[in-house]
Amino acid sequence: MSAATIRLVNSAGEAMENMVVYLQPKHLDGSHSALAEEGVDNLALPLEVHQKNKQFTPYITVVQKGYELQFVNDDDITHHIYSAAGPKRFSFKLRKDNATKTMVFDRVGHVSMGCNVHDWMSGHLLIVDTPYFGLTDEKGWVSFDSAPDADYSLVIWHPQLSSQDNSLSQEVTLPLPQALTITVSALMRDIPSQKSLDDFEFLDGY
């Protein structure tokens, strides 16, 4: 494993998948800032959040402050996307068959999303002020190969994490002497069901 690799497990030692982990640099100088900007070049911009099978896909999306996010409706029905809470408020309709809406998020924070047409749909955006972020894989691993040697606040986040601001943090210094395993003792709430309770559908002319 890379010296900048981290694994998350719960209190039972089980891998925690799809958890947001990001490194917030504690001290930035000019050279470090330049490196941070270079770190974004390997991202496919704009990032995309899809509405597919009446669900947000992915359920959690992380985007760096100031970059574009595109909403894409893959369904053959209209969705009416809105922000339920967070640093950016929005409400817009996406007509069927690959309609898109592009937005720039210029403030950090958590944006909770829903759909006015399909009230079971829920999704989450996390806007961060660092290029060093990722989501853990099915074995709980996430790597930060491009992060330069420095002191960081390592932040763990998930909308269902039962802690203040749905996050936990600790200080780390890169390079790590070895891969780091972190035990997350906070409880995780269940992810809400992303399925309709019935087959009722709004008319296409909504």
Score class of each variant (00 low, 15 high):
Gly39Tyr: 03
Leu45Ser: 10
Leu47Gln: 06
Leu47Asn: 03
Gly39Asp: 06
Pro46Gln: 05
Glu48Gly: 04
Leu23Gln: 01
Val20Met: 00
Glu37Phe: 06
Glu48Cys: 07
Asp29Thr: 15
Ser11Cys: 10
Glu14Ser: 11
Gly30Pro: 00
Met19Ser: 02
Leu28Gln: 14
Leu43Lys: 04
Ala36Thr: 01
Val49Asp: 01
Asp29Lys: 12
Asn42Tyr: 13
Val49Ile: 15
Leu43Pro: 00
Val21Phe: 06
Val21Ala: 03
Val21Lys: 01
Ala12His: 15
Glu38His: 06
Asp29Asn: 15
Lys26Asp: 14
Ala36Met: 12
His32Met: 13
Tyr22Trp: 15
Glu37Cys: 05
Gly13Trp: 10
Ser31Thr: 14
Ala44Gly: 05
Glu48Ser: 13
Ser33Phe: 08
Asp29Cys: 12
Ala34Asn: 09
Ser33Gly: 02
Met19Trp: 03
Met19Lys: 01
Gly13Ile: 09
Ala36Phe: 02
Ala36Arg: 01
Val40Gly: 00
Asn42Pro: 02
Ser11Met: 08
Leu23Met: 04
Ser31Glu: 14
Ala34Val: 14
Ala15Cys: 08
Val40Met: 10
Ser33Ile: 11
Leu35Thr: 05
Ser31Gln: 12
Leu35Trp: 06
Leu43Arg: 04
Glu14Trp: 07
Ala44Met: 08
Glu38Ala: 03
Glu48Phe: 08
Ala15Gly: 07
Ala12Met: 13
Ser33Asp: 04
Glu14Gln: 14
Leu35Glu: 06
Leu45Glu: 11
Pro46Asp: 07
Lys26Thr: 13
Ala15Asn: 08
Gly30Thr: 11
Glu38Met: 02
Glu17Asn: 15
Met16Lys: 04
